[in-house]
Write a protein that binds this DNA or RNA. Structure first.
Lengths: 174, 174
DNA sequence: TGAAATGTAAAATGATCGTTTTACATTGCA
DNA sequence: TGCAATGTAAAACGATCATTTTACATTTCA
């Protein structure tokens, strides 16, 4: 495991568990096992490090959503929360923590949410055989809601969302 | 407007817009128009101030959810985001920012989310004539999802959630 | 009338912030 | 062999953090 990915992995863990602003660079260097000089050579700045964390996380998350049915989207989310835990959406949290005032972070979040919406629209088309923007919005709301409700309601929130989506899909089918 | 409520109002605004950790006490004193000595006499500490902000916000939010139908819950949320804007749930954000390690905050968040769930269950009973824990969970997911999806999708997310809830309610009716 | 309460302004506290720098060791490659 | 790259350890940077303290002004009310 090379220096850069060791750093990104440690940063993701700390930012996700303790928050972006509250995580100091000394904690980061200690967790990544490197000097601050090396950290800054690889990361540039704290904000750039967070942006890289978000971009990598986006790729990892979106890879799991390469499915052909709406139900499989929720199955993928169930897997995700099993592996990553339930702390809400790191993208929205990062942007909220910085008030949207950190460009690198705001851009990474916007890019991720655009991909997320696009993917859901594609899956709805694959599942339903045609576009349906309202259903797409509803599936997005259910996925976002499951992610955040799971923080305090646990995995039940995801399965309830999955069942709700199944009903909406069935009703929309020709 | 007395000192305490002027402070709480200013604190809610800053914490909500710029984040809890990122908001310094000097910014708070400037916005509230008082010295730090007075601020600490009234607030105790930054964490206690945030806890008081959350408790007041909980009362203000829950007062709007004193309705008799699931559809009215979503109408109330539409009103809420029109007035308060769309920055996600301040309760979940506060807890995430502090990693759950600040007891005053964690307790205020837990209390709010318990009330929130309880209220939804009550409204489902009032609307449906009987308990339905799965439907309750689904309505909670839709409300939570609308709140967070609205951050980047706008008010459309709330109306899509409202329509989805109407379908689920109709299907569950005897 | 006078003491208690409530406020302000501003400095000081010690810690921690993100970032840069200085000085030195190890590696890979021409 | 020697230079460029890549690393470490640790100190220093000035700024800012939450909180307390010192010194003083105003209001409230018995």
């Amino acid at each position: 495991m090379d220096t850069t990915s060791k750093l990104t992995a440690a940063a993701e863990r700390l930012f996700d568990r303790h928050g972006y602003v509250a995580t100091g660079m000394d904690r980061l260097t200690a967790a990544a096992g490197m000097s601050s000089r090396t950290l800054y050579k690889h990361a540039g700045s704290k904000a750039q490090l967070m942006a890289r964390v978000l971009t990598e996380r986006d790729q990892r998350f979106m890879a799991r959503l390469e499915v052909q049915s709406v139900d499989a989207l929720f199955a993928a989310l169930e897997d995700w929360v099993r592996v990553e835990g339930t702390r809400g959406c790191l993208f929205l949290r990062s942007r909220a923590e910085t008030g949207g005032d950190t460009p690198e972070i705001a851009e990474a979040v916007a890019a991720h949410k655009a991909s997320f919406h696009r993917r859901i629209a594609e899956v709805v088309v694959a599942d339903l055989g045609r576009e349906n923007s309202v259903l797409t919005e509803q599936v997005l709301v259910l996925l976002e809601g499951a992610t955040h409700a799971a923080v305090y309601r646990g995995a039940d929130a995801v399965s309830a969302a999955r069942a709700a989506a199944a009903i909406l899909i069935e009703r929309a089918r020709p």
